[in-house]
């Protein structure tokens, strides 16, 4: 029962996505092109975030701790 509701909700969300981006009116092959592009972009963003964000966070952390807490010597 609950599972069905969740499924319905996800389908509804997907439908809204179709409508807002207008791919609702596109032909199936155009839809797949659009989906492929979106998925690729999203995947790349996620992957980039996964690879680079930790490094940047660590650098930023190091930088700010140097700026604000110069007494506590940081040994990275």
């Amino acid at each position: 029962m609950d599972l069905k509701q969740i499924k319905d909700y996800i389908y509804w969300l997907y439908f809204q996505y179709l409508l807002v981006t207008c791919i609702y009116v596109l032909e199936p092959w155009e839809r797949s092109v659009f989906h492929t592009i979106t998925i690729t972009v999203v995947a790349m963003v996620v992957y980039t975030a996964y690879v680079f964000v930790p490094i940047h966070v660590r650098l930023a952390f190091g930088f700010f701790s140097q700026v604000f807490g110069s007494q506590t010597e940081n040994t990275l």
Binding site: V20, C22, L26, E30
Partner: peptide, 16 residues
């Protein structure tokens, strides 16, 4: 804004 986005997508596919 979303309406313009929609027209943007349709226009791109139109050019394609």
């Amino acid at each position: 804004v979303l309406t313009y986005v929609g027209y943007g997508v349709l226009t791109l596919f139109g050019y394609l």
